[in-house]
Write a protein that binds this DNA or RNA. Structure first.
Length: 920
RNA sequence: GCCGUCUUAGCUCAGUGGUAGAGCACUCGCUUCACACGCGAUAGGUCACAAGUUCAAAUCUUGUAGACGGCACCA
C-alpha cells in the first residue's frame, strides 16, 4: 500500500471524531464487561463566554490522555463535559449587546426580558468552546453534557441552599463586603485582585477638637470616606492623645460631631497614631464601630457616586471627583496638613479591573466553619485530595482552609440562580424550593422573591455530584445520561442499557481525578470537596492534578492586553492537533512553560516520523499482516527482534507506570525515544534488507511492533494513530479489547499494551548494545576520516569468543550500517599501521584499515581525545577508590562496580596508548 | 509581614545522594531507494553563589543574590 509522503493532519482530523462520537465510543456504555471497574473525570466547566485557550488545551489533553488510556485498559470510562453559566461575564455581554444594538439599559427591558436574552445569547454563542473541544479530539460523553443552569442542576442548587439555610449554615446579614461599582454587585474575597499603584497619595486631614484650639490629624488614602466618619480612634496607651479621649470633633464639611475613642486596634507607631473611623466603608472600622456602638453611615451609592448622606455639596458626585473636592475644601479651610506620595495596593474587580469599594451591605453568606473542618478532616485522615504535584499545593490548600472566612454568595445580577428566598411585606424571610412552597410556609401571604442570584461558584461547587443527577430530595432521575440534556444527543447508534450497579451518582462518584489550574483551587476545588462531602458524604475526587501556566513568548501570562496570547486553534492548523497535544503532554506536571513554536515543531516532526515509519512498513507489507502470535516464542528469533521486543515491553511497562503517577512528560519521552531511536533508527534500519526483499516473517513482525507502538501513542495522538492503525493490514474489530467486542474497528478500543516483564531480555539488550557500540565506533572513524559514504571499509575486530559469535551472527546488519564490505574477527588485531582504531566495552578492539585514506595527525588527535576522556573518568574513580572511607562505608556493590569500571578503563586506555605509540 | 517555588548546555526545558540529559540552534559530512518535518558524526555545562551534613552533594540542610507565586495587611 502506498500512502502520502508527508503526514497531513487535517485529513486525519477530518472524519475520525465524528465516527467515534456517533459510534458511541466515548460513552461508558460502550464497555460491555459487567465487571469492568469505572474511571471517571468531570471537566472543569468552561465559561459559556469563553473560547479555547492554551490552558484549556493543556488540561483537556491531560484529561483525554487519562480517559483514553483507562478506556483502553478496559475501564468503564466517563469523561463528563459541561459548561458554566458564568454569571457576571454573560451578564456583561448582554448588557453590552443591549447598549450597542438598542441603546438600552437592563432596567429598560426588565428582569424577565433580560434573562430571556441571556439565554438567547447562551444558545447562540455558548457552544464555541464545546465545538472547539471536538477539534481537540476530547473523548467526552456528549450525551451527558451538563450546564450549570440545567433544570436538574438548578434544582440541586436550590436544594443545597434550602438545606444549608435550615441548618443555619447560610445566613443573611449586614457586613462590609467588596463592592464593584461598575458591575454593581458584591464580590467574594477570591474575586478581588490587587493592583499596585505607585503614584498613590496619603492625605493628612486635620479635624478640629471642640472646646480646644487643637486639631487631631488623621491620614487616609480615601479622603471622600471622611464624610462617613463617625469617630476618630487612638490607642488607649498613647500619651499624646490621652487627654483628648472622650472629647468631640466637629467633622469638617459636615454638621456632625463625632467622638474621639480609644481602641487597641490603633497602632500608635503608625502614621499619626489617630485613625478616622468609617464603619460603613472599611472592614476594620466596622469592627471598631461594633465595639463602640458607633453609627454606620453609608455615604456612597451602588455606582460609586456619593449619596445624600454625604451632604448636598457632594451628592451625586463620583467617588474620585468627591475625593478631589474634599481635599480642595480641606485646603481652603486650612485643614489639609500635607499630602505624601504613597505606594498603595488597591483592590480591583478580577474581571473588570474597577477599583472595588469596601461597603456595608446586606448580603447572603455561607458559614464555613463546619465545612472547613470536614475538608480539613479529609485531608488529615485520608490525605484527600491527593495533589499532583503535592508540593506546594497540599500545604497551600490546607493553610487556606485553616484561615477560611465566610463566603459571600449573593450577587446583584439577573443572570444566574435566583436566591430561593421570599419576603413578605414585613420583611420576614421564607426559604423554600419553589415560590408555591414559600407561600405555603408564609400562610398564603403575597411574597416577593429575593432579587439577587447566587455566586457562579455556588453551583460550580456542586458540579461533582449535580452533574450525575443529584437534585437533593428525590433520587436521581435515571442513569446513563438520560437526564435532561442541554446538548443535542449526537449518539446515533443505540447502545444497550446501562449496566446494573445503580445510577451515575453511585457508579461514577467519587471521580478519579480532577485536572485544573492553580487559580481555582480555592474558588472551586475546595468548595467541591466540602459540598460533596456535606451532601453526598463522598469525596468529590481522589486526586487533583494541578497544571502549570502556559506563558507567552515573553514569559508572562498570556493576556489580551499584553497581546502575547497563542491561540490553540492556530496551532492545530499550523502543526496539527496531535502535535499540539503531545507537546502539551510533554510539559512536566505543574510546571509553567514559556510558549515556543520551535518545540511544537519537534512534535510535528515526530508525528511525521510516525507517519513515514508506517508508510515504509506499508510499502513493503505484501502478504504480511499484524499478527501478535509472531512475537511469541522469542528464543529462536534473531538478536534484533529479541532486542526490540524487550525494548517494546520495557517501554510499555514504564509508560504505564509513568501515567499512573501522572508523569505525562516521562511517558512522552519514553515513547518518543523508543519510537524514534530504537524502532526507527535501529530496528527498521537493521531490518531493511529483509523487508526490501519481502521477507514475510520480518514484515509481519515489524507491522506487529508498529501496531503495538501506535496503541501506546494513541492517548496522546488520537487522530494520527487511528488513521494509521486502520491502514495497517490485519487490523479489524477482532482486535478490540474484550470489553468492546461488539464495537467497530478502532484503535481507541484496543487494549493498551500492559508490557510483559517476562519479555524483557537483558542478554539481548546487552548483545545489541555491543553491536550498536561497534557500528557507532566505525561510523565515528568514517566521519572523522572523511570516508565517503559510498566507500566501503573493512572492519577488523579483536574480541572474546562470545562477542565474536555475536558479531558473526549479526554480520549482515553490521556491514550494512557500518558500510563495511568485510568483517574480520579474531582474538587479536592483524592490521597495517595505516588503520584507525577504537576500543569497545567488554575488552574488544576494532580497527579500520585506511591505506591511503588515513590522516595520521588526525588519527593521533582522535585517539588522544578518547584517551583524555577515559582518563578523566579514571582519575575520578581512582580518587574515590583510594579514599578509605569510601571503600569502608559505601555499599559493597557500589565499590565493586567502580573497581570493575576502573579495570575496564585501564585496559582501554592502555590499548589506545599502544595504538597511539604505534603511529609514531 | 507570613508561606512557598524557581535559578541545569546558546535557547526552551527534563532529571537525580554515587560517571550531567533531551529537543532546537551551532559545527562537520550525507539528494543512502520511509521520512531534509530526514540520516550520520562532533562540539557545548564548577547544575546561581557560600557554608554545612555525608565515604559521596547538582541532588539533603542553612544562608546570600536574582526571578516569580500565594496569603495577610495597607490609617
Amino acid at each position: 500500500m502506498e500512502i502520502a509522503k508527508a503526514y497531513d493532519p487535517k485529513e486525519a482530523e477530518h472524519s475520525h471524531y465524528e465516527r467515534w462520537e456517533s459510534s458511541g465510543f466515548f460513552r461508558p456504555e460502550i464497555n460491555q464487561d459487567p465487571d469492568a471497574p469505572k474511571y471517571s473525570i468531570v471537566i472543569p466547566p468552561p465559561n459559556v463566554t469563553g473560547s479555547l485557550h492554551m490552558g484549556h488545551a493543556l488540561q483537556h489533553t491531560i484529561m483525554d490522555v487519562l480517559t483514553r488510556w483507562k478506556r483502553m485498559q478496559g475501564y468503564r470510562t466517563l469523561w463528563l463535559p459541561g459548561t458554566d453559566h458564568a454569571g457576571i461575564s454573560v451578564q456583561r455581554k448582554v448588557v453590552e449587546q443591549l447598549k450597542k444594538d438598542e441603546h438600552k439599559k437592563p432596567t429598560d427591558i426588565g428582569r424577565e426580558e433580560f434573562v430571556r436574552r441571556a439565554w438567547a445569547w447562551k444558545e447562540q454563542y455558548g457552544n464555541t468552546i464545546t465545538e472547539q473541544m471536538r477539534r481537540e479530539g476530547a473523548s467526552v460523553d456528549w450525551s451527558r453534557h451538563r450546564f450549570t443552569m440545567d433544570e436538574d442542576l438548578s434544582k440541586a442548587v436550590r436544594s443545597v441552599f434550602v438545606t444549608l439555610y435550615n441548618e443555619g449554615w447560610i445566613y443573611k446579614g449586614l457586613r462590609i463586603v467588596n463592592w464593584c461599582p461598575k458591575d454593581k454587585t458584591v464580590l467574594s474575597d477570591l474575586e478581588v485582585k490587587e493592583e499596585t499603584k505607585k503614584d498613590g497619595k496619603l492625605f493628612y486631614l486635620k479635624y478640629p477638637v471642640i472646646g480646644t484650639d487643637r486639631t487631631i490629624t488623621v491620614a487616609t488614602t480615601r479622603p471622600e470616606t471622611m464624610l462617613g466618619d463617625t469617630a476618630v480612634a487612638v490607642n488607649p496607651k498613647d500619651e499624646r492623645y490621652s487627654d483628648l479621649i472622650g472629647k468631640t470633633i466637629a467633622l469638617p464639611l459636615t454638621d456632625r460631631e463625632i467622638p474621639i475613642i480609644a481602641d487597641e486596634y490603633v497602632d500608635a507607631e503608625f502614621g499619626t497614631g489617630a485613625v478616622k473611623i468609617t464603619p460603613a466603608h472599611d472592614p476594620n472600622d466596622y469592627q471598631v464601630g461594633l465595639r463602640h456602638d458607633l453609627p454606620q453611615l453609608l455615604v456612597m451609592n451602588d455606582d460609586g457616586t456619593m449619596n445624600a448622606a454625604a451632604g448636598a455639596e457632594f451628592e451625586g458626585i463620583d467617588r474620585f471627583k468627591a475625593r478631589e473636592k474634599v481635599v480642595e475644601r480641606f485646603e481652603e479651610l486650612g485643614l489639609l496638613e500635607k499630602v505624601d506620595d504613597y505606594e498603595i495596593t488597591l483592590p480591583v474587580c478580577e474581571r473588570c479591573k474597577t477599583i472595588v469599594e469596601p461597603i456595608l451591605s446586606d448580603q447572603w453568606f455561607v458559614k464555613m466553619d463546619e465545612m472547613r473542618d470536614m475538608a480539613l478532616d479529609l485531608m488529615r485522615t485520608q490525605g484527600a485530595p491527593h495533589f499532583s504535584p503535592q508540593v506546594p499545593h497540599e500545604k497551600v490548600y490546607t493553610a487556606w482552609l485553616e484561615n477560611l472566612k465566610d463566603w459571600t454568595i449573593s450577587r446583584q445580577l439577573w443572570w444566574g440562580h435566583q436566591i430561593p428566598a421570599w419576603y413578605d411585606a414585613d420583611g420576614n424571610v421564607f426559604v423554600a424550593m419553589t415560590d408555591d412552597e414559600a407561600r405555603e410556609k408564609a400562610g398564603g401571604k403575597e411574597l416577593m422573591q429575593d432579587q439577587d442570584v447566587l455566586d457562579t461558584w455556588f453551583s460550580s461547587g456542586l458540579w461533582a455530584f449535580s452533574t450525575f443527577g443529584w437534585t437533593g430530595s428525590e433520587p436521581p432521575a435515571s442513569a446513563g445520561g438520560q437526564v435532561s440534556r442541554t446538548d443535542k444527543d449526537s449518539t446515533a447508534v443505540a447502545l444497550p442499557p446501562p449496566h446494573a450497579g445503580g445510577s451515575d451518582l453511585d457508579i461514577f462518584l467519587p471521580t478519579d481525578v480532577l485536572v485544573t489550574g492553580r487559580d481555582i483551587i480555592f474558588l472551586w476545588v475546595s468548595r467541591m470537596m466540602m459540598l460533596t462531602k456535606k451532601f453526598v458524604d463522598k469525596k468529590a475526587f481522589e486526586d487533583v492534578i494541578v497544571t502549570g501556566t502556559v506563558l507567552g513568548k515573553d514569559g508572562k501570562p498570556m493576556s489580551k492586553s499584553r497581546n502575547n496570547g497563542v491561540d490553540p486553534i492556530e496551532m492545530f492548523d499550523k502543526f496539527g492537533v496531535d502535535a499540539t497535544r503531545i507537546y502539551l503532554a510533554s510539559i512536566a506536571t505543574g510546571a509553567d512553560i514559556k510558549w515556543n513554536d520551535l518545540l511544537i515543531e519537534t512534535s510535528r516532526n515526530f508525528a511525521n516520523k510516525i507517519w513515514n515509519a508506517t508508510r515504509f512498513c506499508l510499502l513493503n507489507s505484501e502478504g504480511a499482516k499484524v499478527d501478535h502470535e509472531c512475537l511469541i516464542g522469542r528464543s529462536g528469533l534473531p538478536l534484533s527482534d529479541r532486542w526490540i521486543i524487550s525494548r517494546l515491553n520495557q517501554t510499555a511497562i514504564d509508560v504505564n507506570k509513568s501515567l499512573a503517577k501522572y508523569e505525562f512528560h516521562t511517558a512522552v519521552s519514553l515513547l518518543y525515544h523508543f519510537f524514534w531511536d530504537d524502532f526507527c533508527d535501529w530496528y527498521i534500519e537493521l531490518k531493511k534488507d529483509e523487508i526490501n526483499i519481502g521477507d514475510v516473517e520480518a514484515t509481519t513482525r515489524i507491522l506487529t511492533i508498529m501496531e503495538i507502538a501506535l496503541r501506546m501513542l494513541h492517548p496522546f495522538m488520537p487522530y494520527l494513530t487511528e488513521e494509521l492503525w486502520l491502514k495497517l493490514p490485519g487490523t479489524s474489530a477482532e482486535m478490540l479489547a474484550s470489553a468492546y467486542k461488539s464495537a467497530d474497528a478502532t484503535i481507541m478500543l484496543t487494549a493498551f499494551p500492559p508490557g510483559d516483564a517476562s519479555a524483557i531480555d537483558a542478554a539481548a539488550e546487552g548483545e545489541m548494545q555491543s553491536v550498536i557500540d561497534l557500528i557507532k565506533k566505525v561510523r565515528n572513524i568514517r566521519a572523522e576520516m572523511n570516508i565517503k559514504s559510498s566507500d566501503k571499509v573493512s572492519v577488523h575486530v579483536a574480541a572474546s569468543a562470545e562477542m565474536r559469535a555475536n558479531f558473526m551472527a549479526n554480520e549482515a546488519q553490521i556491514k550494512k550500517l557500518a558500510r563495511a564490505d568485510s568483517i574480520v574477527l579474531g582474538d587479536s588485531l592483524d592490521v597495517p599501521k595505516a588503520s584507525a582504531k577504537a576500543v569497545l566495552s567488554g575488552g574488544a578492539e576494532i580497527a579500520v584499515p585506511l591505506e591511503g585514506l588515513i590522516d595520521f595527525d588526525k588519527e593521533r588527535e582522535r585517539l588522544q581525545t578518547q584517551i583524555t576522556k577515559l582518563d578523566t573518568e579514571l582519575q575520578r574513580l581512582n580518587g574515590q577508590l583510594s579514599n578509605a572511607n569510601f571503600v569502608e562505608r559505601a555499599p559493597a556493590e557500589k565499590v565493586e562496580e567502580l573497581r570493575e569500571r576502573k579495570g575496564e578503563l585501564e585496559q582501554q586506555i592502555a590499548t589506545l596508548k599502544l595504538n597511539l605509540e604505534a603511529l609514531g
